[in-house]
Design a protein around this nucleic acid. Structure first.
Length: 553
DNA sequence: CCCTACTCCATGGTTCGTAC
DNA sequence: GTACGAACCATGGAGTAGGG
């Protein structure tokens, strides 16, 4: 059955005809298709004056010209929608469009349409957007008078329907996908907890934004965006990935944000992914539950400071009635690895190594993931970290390599899969007790709310431990509390650091001016790089040293 | 390195309308 | 009926933000 024609209020510009816009559109496109005079040796640009621009004629784009009839309909619809949305926006004369939907509704010309409207001074499209969250802002020129008329337009209706459908599809698909992957019950409970989450220290968050030294403007913008998102409230699950990890506003928030939220405490797993790797080790070396049980129960009796850990483990197992031949095939470094990860001290050995002292602890983690666990190449060539890992844990390294032979991303995904599996069942157990909890991939976050009075760190910890034991692992957890005092401390530390770094730079500048000083040139080089933004100086608090750090792009 | 999300851009294949 | 090209659609790479 056909739809009855319905009159609706349709907006247009008073003084600009759609035909004129189309003319401009075609003109711009023709220009693009013309051979272009342009600099062709951009790749050879240097910072000094030796660069000579080579200007050549290159072939223009080969975009086909769209049909005017179709363009007319698209513009009529888009302009109507644009004015309508800007007018109904209480915050101002602007709006945003989901570009995926725009592209589906209008086709690829939508980019050219926006450009044309911008060239004509009708709209202003901001260059900034927030990846994954917020589309570009489209601002309508406030000086252009608009008119509206009640009429029926088949094509505007057509495109409106299409857009409506896309929007609905977009939302429904998201929710359905998430529900089917999580199961209705887990979805409902998680969502209920999310609704309770709130930014209880908004002012402090803003204060932090104003005082913190962000690494880039984008980073600061992002921070602002997250604050605004918390203001909106009514959070939903953003997505579930193929490894069943749950994404929400919490997983999107910068770490410092935990201090501004209504969080009672969180429980984090130490060296989470390295610990999970034990599951592959246990399978590969056929280590049975009995052995693991003995080992995990005696972690505190093993002293890694005076004699080889593996020797102690072997003795321990034999003393507990394990036959020698049962563990004969298990290399020493495997025992050491299981011990270190289960005790949560895996990173310590690496941070102590001289060659990594210049790295921040967080950088060491990233490097280890990049070079060892999740690296795509199977050799240690050019990878300092992988080399020292291989030296310390040769058998573990071999197993990492083996697991990547067929599919280079297998290990990364497998780890996340195991992790999400453990945390999902932990959540289910906690929800069964009616607690309001959330997760950030390798941590359980307990909200600060009345129903969580009985939800103690000890209880959560025991549930987490049980879930890990189900897959043969024993985690070392930490309980973290959050408060705005942490933030004050951090800001203070940051200010202090900046002061010290500035003093250091000042001293460099003095030397740089003194040609007779032996380090004059070095200081000049450092100052130049700092000014260029190709390097930075920070203080490594683990070693209490200044670190001059190159920024690679 | 892995995962998420989004934009922009290029490309290649399919569908559909129109001219002959 | 065939041929052609515009329009549409899907896909993948690069880039950027966040998390591990």
């Amino acid at each position: 059955m056909g739809k009855l024609p319905m009159k609706q209020l349709i907006y247009t510009f008073k003084d600009i005809s759609i035909d004129a816009i189309i003319e401009k559109h075609i003109e711009l496109l023709k220009n693009q298709n013309q051979p272009q005079w342009t600099i062709t040796n951009f790749d050879k640009v240097t910072c000094d004056s030796s660069f000579v621009a080579k200007i050549e004629t290159v072939e223009g784009a080969n975009k086909p010209l769209p049909k005017k009839q179709i363009l007319y309909k698209k513009y009529a619809f888009f302009i109507h929608r644009l004015i309508q949305r800007c007018k109904s926006n209480r915050e101002g004369n602007f709006t945003r469009f989901n570009s995926q939907i725009l592209q589906t509704v209008l086709g690829h010309v939508y980019i050219d349409m926006l450009k044309t409207l911008e060239t004509l001074g009708i709209i202003k499209v901001s260059s900034s957007y927030i990846p994954s969250i917020q589309a570009r802002l489209i601002e309508l020129n406030p000086n252009l008078p608009t008119v509206s008329e009640m009429k029926y337009s088949s094509y505007i209706e057509e495109y409106s329907d299409k857009m409506q459908q896309e929007l609905k599809k977009y939302e429904q698909i998201q929710i359905q996908k998430i529900k089917s992957e999580m199961g209705d019950k887990l979805y409902d409970n998680f969502t209920k907890s999310l609704k309770i989450l709130k930014l209880s220290h908004r002012e402090e968050a803003e204060d932090y934004r104003n005082r913190h030294h962000f690494i880039s403007l984008k980073s600061k913008e992002y921070f602002t965006y997250i604050i605004n998102e918390y203001d909106k409230g009514n959070f939903n699950i953003l997505s579930i990935d193929s490894n069943l990890r749950i994404y929400s506003i919490l997983t999107q928030s910068p770490r410092i944000f935990k201090n501004f939220l209504n969080i009672k405490f969180s429980i984090d797993i130490h060296n989470s992914h390295p610990l999970l790797f034990n599951k592959l080790i246990i399978e590969r070396y056929n280590i049975n539950d009995n052995i693991l049980h003995i080992l995990y129960n005696n972690l505190s009796n093993i002293d890694n400071s005076y004699c080889s850990v593996s020797k102690q483990v072997c003795n321990l197992l034999i003393n507990n009635g394990i036959r020698k031949e049962k563990i004969a095939n298990i290399p020493n470094d495997i025992w050491e690895y299981i011990y270190n990860t289960s005790k949560g001290i895996f990173w310590d050995d690496f941070t102590r190594l001289d060659e990594f002292k210049r790295l921040l602890r967080s950088d060491i983690k990233v490097t280890l993931f990049r070079e060892v666990f999740y690296s795509k190449t199977l050799t240690t060539k050019g990878k300092d970290f992988a080399k020292s890992f291989k030296k310390k844990y040769p058998s573990v390294y071999k197993l990492v390599k083996e697991s990547k032979r067929e599919d280079r991303t297998f290990l990364a995904n497998q780890m996340m899969r195991i992790e999400s599996d453990i945390f999902r069942s932990t959540l289910i157990k906690l929800y069964a007790k009616r607690f309001k909890v959330l997760t950030i991939h390798d941590a359980i976050v307990v909200l600060d709310t009345k129903v969580n009075d009985q939800c103690t760190p000890e209880l959560v910890q025991s549930i987490i431990e049980k879930e890990y034991q189900r897959v043969g692992l024993f985690p070392n957890v930490s309980v973290d509390y959050y408060s705005t005092e942490n933030v004050v401390k951090e800001l203070k530390q940051e200010e202090q650091d900046i002061k010290e770094i500035n003093q250091l730079i000042d001293s460099f500048e003095v030397i740089a001016k003194d040609e007779s000083h032996p380090r004059c040139q070095t200081c000049r080089d450092i100052i130049n790089e700092l000014e260029d933004g190709t390097s930075e100086i920070y203080i490594n608090h683990a070693t209490n040293e200044f670190v001059w750090h190159k920024i690679f792009n």
